[in-house]
Amino acid sequence: MQAEFKFQPVSFSWVALHPEPKGVVQFIGGAFFGTFPTIFYRYFLRKLFEEGYTIVALPFRFSFRHWSIAATLFAEQNTLRTELTTLAQRYGYQHKIYQENSKYSWVGHSLGCKYVALLEFLSGDRWQEVVQQCVNAKEAARIERAIAEIVPPEKISIKGQPSLLLAPDISDTESAIPIRAVARWLDKLKLGVLPTREQTQCCVASSSLFNLTALISFQNDTVAGNLGDKDRSEEIQKNSDVLWFFRQLQKRPLPLLCKELPGKHLEPVGVQVGPYVVDLNPLDKFIEPIAQRWLERVAIEFLSELRRREQNLP
C-alpha cells in the first residue's frame, strides 16, 4: 500500500498516518518553529515517515509551567492511542501497533527536549522523592497538584519508549526573556520558568531512567551548545546544555548514542525545494543540498538502534 505523507488534525496534534507503520514517532519542536511543526520541520518529519513511522507532530506550547506541559504530553499520548487505532481501522491500515506501548518513540528539538526529558523523569518510581530533593517542599507540593490536575501521577509512564534529543535546550526564565532584570524579578515572584535549568538538571541526574536516550548536536550551535564547548571557558561549559546532557548520559549503563553534525541550532528546520532543503531562516545558511545533509540519516539510524536496545533490555 502506497504511503501518502499527509497531516490531519487528531486531538490536539497533527498526524501523518502510515498504512504499514513499524512505530510511532511523537515529535515536539522548539519555540516559534515548533508552533507550526508540519510546516517548519516538514522535511525532517517526511523522511521519518518514509522510513515507516506514523508521525505525531505535537504543536509547541509556550508556557512558564513546564511540568504541566510534560504531563499533557502523556495525556495526549493516551488519547491518541485510541484515536489512531480508530482512524487506521477506518482507512484499512494496520492498527494493532497503536495499542503497543513500546512502539512509541519521542523526538524533541531545542526546548521540546526539555518537555520530553521531564516526561521521562516523571515515569520513574521515585520522582516525587527526587523532586523534594531538587526543590523546596512547598514547590514540590505545587508540582504534584499541577500534574494531578492533568493526569494521575502514578499513571504516567513512558518506560520502554526511546527518546532522541536534537540540540536539547533546558531554558530557564533568562533564556525566555532576554532582559535579565525582568527575568530575575519574575523568578523572585515565583512567576518565572519552572523547573529552572538547575532544577531540571538535578531531576535528570537523580533519575535511574534515560537508558534509551540518544543525542544529536550541531557543531556551530550557540543556543544549546555543542561538544566543542568542553575545550572552552568554564562559563561556556556551565551554560552548554548539550555538553551537560552528554556528560550526564554517559553515566548510564548503556553506551550513549551520540553524534555531532555540521550546522547550527535550527538544523532540523526545513522544507524541500527540488534537490535542496530550505531552512526558512535568513540568519542561517538558508539553503542546503540534500546530498550534504546527514541529520535525517543519523536520526533514523539512532531510532532503529534504540529500538533494538529496548527489545534486548531485561
Score class of each variant (00 low, 15 high):
P19M: 03
P19W: 02
Y43V: 00
F44V: 03
L58G: 05
L58H: 10
R65K: 10
Q77W: 11
R81P: 08
T82M: 03
E83T: 13
Q89D: 01
Y91F: 04
G92S: 02
Y93E: 00
H95V: 00
Y98K: 00
S105W: 07
Y115A: 14
A117S: 15
E120H: 07
L122N: 11
W127D: 03
V130T: 15
V131K: 06
Q133L: 08
Q133M: 06
C134A: 13
I143M: 07
I147Y: 08
A148F: 03
E149K: 14
V151A: 12
I156P: 04
I170P: 13
A176Y: 10
I177K: 01
I179Y: 05
R180Q: 12
A183R: 03
L186P: 00
L189S: 01
P195K: 11
T196Y: 00
T200G: 11
S208Q: 15
N211G: 03
L215C: 10
L215H: 04
S217K: 05
R232Q: 13
R232K: 08
Q237R: 14
V242I: 10
L261V: 05
K264E: 15
Y276M: 08
V277C: 09
D284G: 15
E288I: 10
I290N: 07
I290S: 08
V298T: 13
R308F: 05
